[in-house]
C-alpha cells in the first residue's frame, strides 16, 4: 500500500495515526516520498512545546517520560514522544525498549509514541528525529517529548531541536568535579536528579546545585517531583515566549545557554 505525498500530508494533518507512522518510516528510510511529504506539511498554528529529555544511561529517562505523559494528559494535552535508542554498530539491529516504561499510554488515542533507532547517527538522536518532530508538529500534538539515547557527555544534538532540554542524572555517578565538567549539564536548561530516594542523593543534589542553575529532585516511579518539573518547564516556556527566543537560531540558543561555541 503506497500513497502519494499529497494524500499522506493530508492524512497527517488529520491526525491519521497510520499515516503519521508511515511518513516517519519513509523519512527514516530516506525515501523520496518522505521528503515530499515534509515539504507539504504545515506546522499547526498552536505551537507545540518541544522538550528534550537526555541524560546518562539508566537514570530513568523513560520512566520520567511515562510520568510526564500522565501529568500532561491530566491537563488535557495531546502528547507525542520520540524515543531514540542505539542501533548495533555491528549488525544494524536494535532492541528499542524505551516504550516498555510507557506502555500504559499505548492505546490512549491522544498519545503517540515512536521508537527510533540511531542507524549509525552520532549525537544522541537518529538522523530522522528532527523531521519526525516536524510530522508531530503538523499533527498538532501539544507536548512533544524527545528522549535521546543514554548519552555520555558530548551527544548534544538535542539542543538543536528542542527549545527546552532536561538532563536526567542519578545519585552516585561521580563527585562534584563530574558536575563541573562541560557538556551535558552545561547545555541543559533543567537538571533532574532522578532516583532521589537512593543512597547519596542529598550529596549529589548539593554538588549539582553548586554547579547548575536549575536542579530538581524526582523519584519518577513514585510520581514524586513531577508536578514541580512540569511547573518549571511551563515557566521556561513562558519566558521563552516572552523574549521570543523560541524562534531564535540554534547558535543563539546555545549562546543563551552559556555555551562557548555555536552549533
Amino acid at each position: 500500500m503506497r500513497l502519494d505525498a499529497a494524500t499522506l500530508a493530508e492524512q497527517v494533518a488529520k491526525v491519521d495515526v497510520r499515516a503519521i507512522a508511515r511518513v516517519m518510516s519513509l523519512i527514516e528510510n530516506r525515501d523520496p516520498v518522505g521528503t515530499a511529504v515534509l515539504a507539504q506539511l504545515t506546522p499547526s498554528r498552536a505551537q507545540a512545546s518541544v522538550i528534550g529529555i537526555t541524560g546518562y544511561p539508566g537514570t530513568g529517562k523513560s520512566t520520567l517520560i511515562d510520568q510526564l505523559i500522565t501529568a500532561y494528559r491530566r491537563l488535557g494535552q495531546k502528547v507525542g514522544v520520540l524515543a531514540v535508542d542505539i542501533s548495533s554498530p555491528i549488525t544494524g539491529g536494535a532492541v528499542l525498549g524505551d516504550r516498555i516504561r510507557m506502555q500504559q499510554h499505548a492505546d490512549d488515542p491522544k498519545v503517540f509514541i515512536r521508537s527510533m533507532a540511531t542507524r549509525g547517527h552520532q549525537g544522541g538522536l537518529a538522523h530522522a528525529t528532527g523531521e519526525a518532530l516536524r510530522v508531530l508538529e503538523a499533527a498538532a500534538y501539544d507536548m512533544i517529548l524527545i528522549e535521546t539515547v543514554g548519552v555520555g557527555q558530548n551527544e548534544l544534538d538535542i539542543v538543536q531541536i528542542a527549545p527546552i532540554v532536561v538532563a536526567v542524572v542519578a545519585p552516585g555517578l561521580g563527585d562534584e568535579i563530574q558536575a563541573m565538567k562541560a557538556g551535558l549539564l552545561e547545555v541543559a536548561d533543567i537538571v533532574v536528579m532522578n532516583k532521589g530516594d537512593h543512597e547519596g542523593a542529598d550529596r549529589t543534589m548539593r554538588d549539582l546545585q553548586a554547579q547548575c542553575r536549575m536542579v530538581l529532585r524526582t523519584v519518577a516511579h513514585r510520581d514524586e517531583g513531577i508536578l514541580e518539573l512540569i511547573a518549571v518547564i511551563a515557566e521556561y516556556r513562558r519566558i521563552q515566549d516572552l523574549n521570543g527566543s523560541r524562534c531564535g537560531k540554534t547558535t543563539e540558543r546555545l549562546v543563551q545557554r552559556g555555551a562557548t561555541s555555536g552549533s
Binding site: V17, R18, I20, A21, R22, M24, S25, S87, G93, A94, V95, L96, G97, R99, I100, Q103, A106, D107, F112, I113, R114, S115, A117
Partner: peptide
C-alpha cells in the same frame, strides 16, 4: 529493529503500538 513491549500487554496495546511503530 525490535520494538520490545515487555509483559502483560492487552491486544489493544499491542495493535496501537504496532501501528504507531509502523
Amino acid at each position: 529493529e525490535i520494538i520490545y513491549t515487555g509483559l502483560h500487554q492487552t491486544p489493544e496495546q499491542v495493535v496501537a503500538t504496532a501501528i504507531q511503530e509502523d
